[in-house]
Simulated scan of single mutants.
Amino acid sequence: MAGHDHDEISEITLRPFNLSDIDDFMEWATDEKVSHFCIWDTYNSREQAMGFIKYLAIPHPWLRVICLGEKAIGSISVTPGSGIGEKKGELGYALNSKYWGKGIATRAVKIVVGTIFRE
């Protein structure tokens, strides 16, 4: 079993949001276990979620979906600091609660850190 979890984690990829991610996004955005740890409130409508993807996620300078295979299971973002903190960034993520405890967020953070410093 442990070997299987490790294989799962190595399949993690990051990519920009698409409108077609709406169903996967709804799985974690409507979950109070997830939103409890986030700065946003639980989404309760598809329209609201679609608005987030269209107007915030897609135009965001650095927001990616965390994918396991083809499925979007979470998101991760880096928001640049400003003023005195301009050389810093804030990293935030949300992950579908079904996938908690497998090291997925840790893997996503490592990918982001590697990518951000190259960019």
Rank of each mutant, 00 (worst) to 15 (best):
L68G: 07
G85C: 13
I22D: 01
G114A: 13
I58K: 06
N18A: 14
F17E: 06
L14N: 09
S35R: 03
I22L: 15
S97P: 03
W28D: 00
I104V: 08
L68N: 11
L95D: 05
L91S: 02
M26H: 07
A49M: 10
F37I: 10
I76Q: 00
E47Y: 00
F37W: 13
S20V: 09
S75M: 14
H60M: 06
K88D: 08
S75C: 14
V78E: 06
Y55T: 14
R15D: 09
G101Y: 01
K71F: 01
N44R: 15
R64L: 14
I111G: 00
K71T: 13
N18R: 15
E27G: 03
I116N: 04
A57R: 07
T13F: 00
K54F: 02
A108L: 02
I76G: 06
E86S: 13
L56A: 12
E47M: 05
P61W: 07
T115K: 15
R64S: 12
G74P: 05
L19S: 02
T13N: 04
S20R: 14
L19V: 12
I76K: 09
V78I: 14
A49G: 05
A57V: 13
G69H: 06
K54N: 08
I84P: 07
H60R: 12
S20L: 05
I53E: 00
D21G: 05
N44I: 13
T42H: 04
E32A: 15
V65I: 12
G92H: 06
V112W: 00
K110M: 12
W62S: 11
N44M: 10
P80I: 01
R15M: 06
T30R: 05
T42M: 08
S75Y: 03
K54C: 02
H36I: 11
C67V: 06
P16D: 03
G74T: 05
H60Q: 07
C38G: 00
L91E: 01
D21P: 02
S97C: 08
K88F: 14
G92C: 09
N18K: 15
I116M: 12
L91P: 07
D31K: 04
T42G: 00
I104W: 08
A105Y: 08
L56T: 15
F37H: 14
D23C: 01
G74S: 01
V112S: 00
I58A: 03
A72T: 13
I84D: 02
W28Y: 15
F25G: 02
I84W: 09
K110P: 01
R15S: 13
A105E: 09
A49Y: 02
F37K: 04
T115A: 15
D41L: 13
S82L: 15
S45Y: 05
S45P: 07
D21F: 02
T79L: 05
Y93T: 04
L91F: 01
E90A: 11
I76T: 08
I66R: 01
V109H: 11
F52L: 10
D24T: 10
P61L: 04
A57N: 09
A105G: 12
